[in-house]
Amino acid sequence: MQKPKRTSLPSDKLPPWLKFRIWAGKVIHRGRNVGGGRGQVFRLPFRRIAKLDCHPNELEAMEFVRKHTTIPIPRIYEIYGYDGGQHLVMQEARGGHVKVHYGGMTPGQVKTFGLDLAGCLNQLRSLQPPAAGFVGSLSLGSSLDHRLSGTRFGPFHSVADFHTYLRRGRPLQHWENEPDVVRVHSTPDEYRVTFCHADLNPNNIMVKHGRITAIIDWEFAGWYPEYWDYTKMYWGERPLWANFYRAVEEEPAIIKYPAERAAELAIWKRMHPWSYDDPPWSPGEEQQAGQKQPDQG
């Protein structure tokens, strides 16, 4: 396969030829040309996609997975690098409309999709981390996951440290009313670290007639506890994804983590994702917050 063309930019400003192609895509795909959670994905002519302002981790993860697995990933044609980020031009994957391609699945297609997804997950789980217990990015640096706000976090050198971060530093004694959290976080050494996509849902798994055509959006990917891909599937759960969850739960080759999912649900109830932007918990925080303010009268 031909290597992608690499261009170095002095800033994140788009080169004129890429701006023109984005404009042309808007004309050709009027009303159907913009996507992505931050509106930074554009359809171009000739079945190309431009994804702007990507963290280098996304390309690194895609290249790593392409090299070590057979998971279908869009081909990268052009890389425009600038300090701290990249604009990527890649192949447009077939499929994609959630209501059509997931909502319209037949029972047989649900089964086929489950088998395809199991194969992808098992390949990711077979990849070996750089060190036992390491939680972080491929480059051994920080990670990003909107489950944990919009800022980068880590890396961590043990699952126990990662669990402490999930609790925002609070000791397990503070979670005695959440037995699922206590049960899971009391045994961090039981969990292997595996390579995870960390955002597997119908928006990022392109399907057509029940077959996976591509897995996209690898910016969150990295080394996480083995249950992370499964529990993250339920982050932002919605009824439109019913066939996706049916395929996951009915496919025996997909390892389920119900206790870990319950623990995550308990944490999600108590901790807004953007609370991770605040300083971590420290002893006496609750007492200080509960102190009566002095009378201003």
Rank of each mutant, 00 (worst) to 15 (best):
K3S: 09
S8T: 08
L9A: 12
R21Q: 02
I22H: 06
G25A: 12
I28Q: 13
I28N: 04
G31Y: 00
G36H: 02
G39K: 13
V41Q: 00
P45F: 11
P45V: 13
C54A: 14
N57S: 15
E58H: 07
E63Q: 04
T70F: 02
I71H: 03
I76P: 00
E78T: 10
Y82R: 10
Y82M: 10
V89Q: 10
V89M: 04
M90Y: 15
E92I: 09
V98D: 11
Q109A: 13
V110R: 01
V110N: 06
T112E: 14
T112K: 07
G114N: 04
C120A: 15
L121T: 14
L121F: 01
Q123P: 01
L124Y: 00
P130W: 03
F134W: 09
F134C: 08
L138P: 03
S139N: 15
R147L: 13
G150C: 07
T151D: 00
T151E: 08
G154M: 00
F156S: 04
H157L: 10
V159R: 08
F162E: 06
F162I: 09
L166R: 12
R167H: 00
R168F: 02
W175F: 06
N177G: 09
D180F: 15
V181I: 11
V184M: 05
H185W: 10
T187C: 09
D189V: 08
D189H: 07
E190S: 03
R192E: 12
V193E: 09
V193G: 11
F195I: 08
N204T: 05
A214T: 01
I216K: 03
W218L: 01
F220R: 06
G222Q: 05
Y224H: 07
W228A: 02
Y230D: 01
P239W: 03
W241R: 01
W241I: 01
A242M: 06
N243H: 01
Y245T: 06
R246C: 01
R246E: 01
E249G: 03
A253S: 08
P258G: 07
A266F: 00
P273H: 05
P273Q: 09
W274Q: 00
P283R: 04
E286V: 09
E286F: 14
E286N: 15
Q288R: 13
A289T: 13
Q291I: 08
K292S: 10
K292T: 12
Q293I: 13
P294I: 00
Q296M: 11
Q296G: 15
